[in-house]
Amino acid sequence: MKSESKQNQSDTSFWNSVKWTFGAFVFALGIMNILRGNDPALGVAMLFASALYFPPSYDRIKGVTGISLHYFLRIVLALLIIWINMAVGAISEGYYPEITG
């Protein structure tokens, strides 16, 4: 029973780390699109979307609105954010030549 609790705790800390990392990634993409991109509204939308991946802000949103997003929906949103940024974001538009080469 005790080892099962440790396994559960390590799984939770792993997924918590994944959420924080992806939230920071989306937040950075939002800042990049605001500062040097041609569509600052996309950057602001990414900043708001990053709040869904930071555990404290997600818990706050869930507590205030009472709406909880399923993990599958959050994964689909993550893939959509990456796809949008690679298609029309500041990096794909060539505003960061030091990144794209």
Score class of each variant (00 low, 15 high):
Ala41Asp: 05
Pro40Cys: 06
Pro56Leu: 12
Asn38Lys: 08
Thr21Ser: 14
Tyr53Met: 08
Met32Asp: 01
Ile99Asn: 00
Phe22Ala: 07
Ile81Cys: 07
Leu73Tyr: 03
Val88Gly: 01
Tyr96Ile: 01
Phe54Gln: 11
Thr65Met: 06
Ala78Asp: 01
Val88Glu: 04
Pro55Ser: 08
Ile75Gln: 06
Pro97Leu: 09
Pro55Cys: 01
Ala45Ser: 14
Gly63Arg: 04
Pro55Met: 07
Thr12His: 05
Asn85Asp: 15
Lys19Cys: 09
Trp83Asp: 05
Gly37Thr: 04
Leu80Arg: 00
Lys2Gly: 06
Asp39Met: 08
Pro97Arg: 01
Phe72Ser: 15
Ser92Asp: 12
Lys62Tyr: 01
Phe54Tyr: 13
Val18Glu: 01
Ile81Lys: 07
Asp11Tyr: 13
Phe54Cys: 04
Ser50Pro: 06
Gly23His: 02
Ile82Asp: 00
Leu35Glu: 10
Ile67Gly: 01
Thr65His: 05
Asn8Arg: 12
Pro56His: 09
Asp59Val: 00
Gly37Asp: 04
Ile84Tyr: 09
Val88Ser: 06
Ala45Cys: 10
Leu73Ile: 11
His70Pro: 09
Tyr95Trp: 02
Ala51His: 01
Glu93Val: 02
Glu98Arg: 04
Gly37Val: 10
Leu52Tyr: 15
Ala28Tyr: 11
Thr100Pro: 01
Asn8Gln: 12
Thr100Ile: 15
Leu73Cys: 04
Ile75Arg: 03
Asn16Gln: 13
Lys2Val: 15
Asn85Arg: 05
Thr12Met: 13
Asp59Phe: 11
Lys19Ser: 15
Gly63Pro: 03
Ile67Tyr: 13
Gly30Tyr: 03
Ile34Met: 13
Met86Gly: 05
Ile31Glu: 01
Leu69Thr: 06
Ile31His: 00
Val26Gln: 03
Leu42Tyr: 09
Asn8Trp: 08
Leu35Asp: 02
Val26Met: 07
Phe14Gln: 10
